[in-house]
Design a protein around this nucleic acid. Structure first.
Lengths: 354, 354
DNA sequence: GTTAGCACTCTCATGGTGTGAGTGCCAACC
DNA sequence: GGTTGGCACTCACACCATGAGAGTGCTAAC
């Protein structure tokens, strides 16, 4: 859904912005429609409730606020949140204390991408009190870094591939003849020499150039084919995994008291096509992306918002981290937190490959 | 919670059993309290509703049924389900057509434990229309099968451990001196010779026996220490992962329309202590286990039931598969399906290591 | 342009009412 | 003695009316 343009002409004056801001921030904490009276009481606006009412009516005219019913207070529209995020507030950086705590946590975890992205989701969940999301950094194209063959039984071996960006892949290979570990190691060494650093297509070409009659090359060729297939599978695979934590936080929000809405969100998160599209979109944008309600391409996500950021090494391996929460969400804080966590992960990864 | 004993003396006569069965099976499909009239209408009981009412009252007296309120029909108690599962019905084997379909699916997936257990959860979810659960088969004690060292940068290497049961473990090792891949491979070969098949404590002993002054052994010793630590971590770790699929199915059940109950279930599933205890209990039992409502040790799980079965090689590596659903659940079918899937996984694993 | 005042609107909580499903009991029956 | 039809009784639930309260929009005065 493309977001609709505000009907009102020109930008808002400062007072209107202040009031929109107050409505949104009040609504985000209370989850209840905000009335003119409550605003003048709780925010130093310097005008009476009648004036506030006039401005609220204007903002509603402009499509930034709405009414659940005639005699209720105002709630922000998705356009209202969008305007708020883009024009009124900056992202709020994560407080230094929390930054330190998070750094500490990442430091304690073992050096491994797999741990990092999970920890990122967990951290985001606990800090923002929404759901934390994270995908592993998937290499854009699989380059073989090293392979190993481990004998499992007489005619069965485990083929382990290490890719350039540290990803592991394990497949089983059935063997025509009884083969012991020494033979397997020899084959692995040979293939390591031949295929180091290659992509699927490159590896395929190298294998095709091997002497087709040399019987000593039969097993290397056979394993090599599996390697190529595994690399191809890796290239072809969409995002493997979306790790989420703290969905409990979202469940606790009053707008999800009846589980039907939530069910649809869960369903969308299981939709791999949608996820792949979403993630690649965020990855190419290269910065924090905010999707508010119906701005999400999946209609099941119309009741929630996403704040996502890519991380990793552009062009080599990228993943996405972020949060999912109700549209009524503390966007500035969420954006600040997501920005910090993705930046931290970039830092760690850069440090790793420096 | 220990389950309470029925108050009535002796086993039920066949007619009472038939009626209890009818109530449960009706309630499982409709989710609404079952009245005497509905029973005589839909089940060939051969008696009038008045007689059924008398028996229903007896069953209630015995603690197998209950009333939501005076003028409502009967619903089964947890004791009722328990009696039903233990004394009235046998598990219903999965229809051969579905068995074949599942076998086919497992055949299509790449030979790898990691894929199997996830597929098991997905399969269980779709067949039983409840949530499917599965944990990977965790080795009881970590035996090193093989290790590999892959250079990442001048002073950083990735250490990959393959354990006896096929599990992989990857840790990063920082190096004091610039070391190239050839050196790393040499170290890996050396350690493979020394440590093949050993547990953490055994490996530690072997390393301690190495010549402490030989400078060529410095790096092997250093890496070896990391190996030992990784093996220890593996032994000490509780279950790593509970994969679930189809939680959507459970969310769709009317008893979970308000999300609070569900939230508690999710919370319990994130409780690693509880999971570890649950899983080890099922593993030692060696057969399909049914936990109905409050029979679950976690009180958050009081509204749901679990049907779980272990799989794997007892004493070497075991995991658990099963389903989670509302207490109002088609137990015979669930038990049959879980039994089939765990059996199938055993078959596959046996075939692998035969 | 701002404000106080006021009539108006609409939700939500409360309480009364009627309906219907289902029970428990009892007397009659086989 | 077990089984059955009949009947009074109970209780949740849906429905409606009512009143309080919150909040608005409008207007006239400042």
């Amino acid at each position: 859904m493309a977001r609709r343009v505000r009907r009102s002409s020109g930008p808002l004056d400062l007072r209107s912005q202040a009031i929109l801001r107050a409505v949104i921030e009040e609504y985000v904490t209370t989850a209840a429609p905000v009335g003119s009276h409550a605003l003048v009481e709780r925010y130093r606006l310097g005008v009476s409730s009648a004036t506030v009412r006039a401005i609220l009516a204007e903002l509603e005219e402009g499509g930034l606020l709405t009414h659940p019913h005639t005699s209720a207070g105002r709630i922000p529209t998705e356009q209202g949140y969008r305007y708020y995020v883009e024009a009124i507030v900056d992202s709020v950086p994560l407080p230094p204390v929390e930054q330190l705590m998070i750094r500490h946590q990442f430091g304690q975890v073992e050096y491994a991408n797999e741990h990092w992205f999970r920890l990122a989701a967990t951290t985001l969940a606990s800090v923002t009190r929404a759901a934390g999301l994270a995908t592993p950094a998937k290499p854009t194209s699989a380059h073989l870094r090293r392979l190993d063959l481990v004998s499992i039984s007489d005619r069965l071996a485990s083929l382990i591939l290490v890719l350039r960006e540290g990803a592991l892949k394990q497949v089983l290979v059935t063997l025509d003849h009884v083969t012991d570990q020494a033979d397997l190691t020899a084959v692995a060494n040979r293939l390591n020499d031949l295929l180091d650093g290659l992509t699927a297509t490159e590896a395929e070409r190298v294998l095709a150039a091997l002497d087709p009659v040399d019987p000593s090359l039969e097993l290397p060729r056979r394993v090599g084919e599996r390697v190529v297939r595994a690399l191809q599978a890796f290239d072809g695979a969409a995002i493997e995994e979306l790790f989420s934590d703290g969905l409990l936080n979202v469940m606790a929000a009053p707008e999800f008291a009846q589980s039907e809405k939530l069910r649809r969100v869960f369903a969308a998160l299981e939709n791999r096509v949608y996820l792949a599209q979403l993630i690649s979109g965020v990855a190419v944008s290269g910065r924090v992306c905010v999707f508010i309600g119906h701005e999400n391409t999946a209609e099941e996500m119309a009741d929630v918002s996403l704040v996502l950021a890519p991380y990793g090494r552009p062009g080599r391996a990228v993943g996405v981290v972020g949060v999912l929460g109700p549209t009524r969400m503390a966007y500035p804080q969420a954006i600040g937190t997501v920005r910090f966590v993705s930046g931290l992960m970039n830092e760690l990864i850069d440090h790793l490959y420096a």
